[in-house]
Design a protein around this nucleic acid. Sequence first.
DNA 1: CGATGTATTGACATTGATCAATTGGGGTGG
DNA 2: CCACCCCAATTGATCAATGTCAATACATCG
Lengths: 252, 252
Amino acid sequence: MNQPHRKPDFDIQQLRLSCRECSVHELCLPSSLRGDDLIRLSDLVGHSSYDPGQHIFNTGDVFQALYVVQSGSVKTSVTTRDGGLQILHFHLPGELIGLDGLAEHHHQCTAEPLEPSQVCRLPYRKIEQLANDIPALQKQLLRIVSREFFLDHQHILMMGGRPAIQRLALFIQTLSHRKRLLHEDHRNLTLSMSRVELANYLALATETVSRLLARLQRLGVLRLERHNLEIVDMERLVEISGDDLELVPYPH
Amino acid sequence: MNQPHRKPDFDIQQLRLSCRECSVHELCLPSSLRGDDLIRLSDLVGHSSYDPGQHIFNTGDVFQALYVVQSGSVKTSVTTRDGGLQILHFHLPGELIGLDGLAEHHHQCTAEPLEPSQVCRLPYRKIEQLANDIPALQKQLLRIVSREFFLDHQHILMMGGRPAIQRLALFIQTLSHRKRLLHEDHRNLTLSMSRVELANYLALATETVSRLLARLQRLGVLRLERHNLEIVDMERLVEISGDDLELVPYPH
DNA sequence: CGATGTATTGACATTGATCAATTGGGGTGG
DNA sequence: CCACCCCAATTGATCAATGTCAATACATCG
């Protein structure tokens, strides 16, 4: 398991763009920062690439930084004593990872990319310093943490005693919604995770996921080949999902 | 739905005691506070009693304060558009409620006592002020928020594709563990919630919960009448639960 | 003491898990 | 470039766990 390779040089222009869509850009780009300050910013954050199999951090690791997905996707998971695994979340670009480490200075979960991914590292020490300079940032930080509860609540809601097809439909819906927040095409999704991982996340058997995806395809709700998914009939999808979920993650 | 009745006068001595076990006593009892400062403290927090049916706050309510259960127990839940309900957590004395409201200045869930309960109200404005006076408190506050992720992760883990009996066993185990943290008898629990609520929390049918409780009783693992539960064979309980859960909530 | 709601227990139905076999891709080496 | 291999995904057949429906027992409260 090799080390993540540091990107020695990167395009500030592109960074500025990608940061604009970031869920926590308040942390790195306080309104006071501009121009040359972006250089200072480049000093604050570290950008690394990770491949599947490399862990961004592991359960029990000392908490040192928060991470934001820049490109690709990352899964977080917890393991149980008996070797069981539960995936907690799939993180898309702009989404934050690592907050659960704040509590005990150790990470409570493991973060690992689903595909080659770029991740933005925000050393917590520096965030704290920055927050001391800019008091309003403290409030922001708290709000950002609080925001993460949405995700867990959605997950719990999704797992909560609904039929399998609803869970799957809900999942696809939230994925679509999150892509829309990134101003990307929300009808064409990429399921970067394996069926096994998706099944685990939804608390289903992989075979069930396969079958239900096939079913949704037969119903003309979506079209998929491999990991590319096109939502053909969004209304129907929402209908099947039970129109259940309050979709309010990461409101900008 | 009548208003919660204010306790006009209360016993500071008892308050001091109950606060000592509180999961967030760092917020109200910074080490610098002592003696007369406790009076100031009494100004900060409000103590209210709520009965079942009264809501402490509702989804969508403007976020103004955090709450800590002092006595009794409180459930938090979210509702879905189609009228579905999902219980997120049962809060015991010393546990915190309302953090999810920080993000958007509106509560994301509803909080309601399961039985007549006393709740401690921490106006957020005042917490912020206090935090300005004591910088270390800011860090504490963040850690407290982060700690709440444990609970959600536990919940997700509990729901995650395990057999019903494991979920139930895990739930009882965590309840027991939380009572122990309060230095109370952890072998005699009170299931203050109804079977319906418990089933909802575990994503099971109420009948299943009933049957499995009966089964655990037949197995000699526990003894229960109505809502009083005695754990007879803790080892067996842990064994049934799969010895799964990392029990690390609210470490003091 | 009766009424109402909650919990339990039973019979049955159904969803989704499990087991097993097959297909299909992507990568590797000849 | 093709052939093979390996892992992931799909599909099928079966079964078990748990949900659903229905009836009864139990408590609590007026």
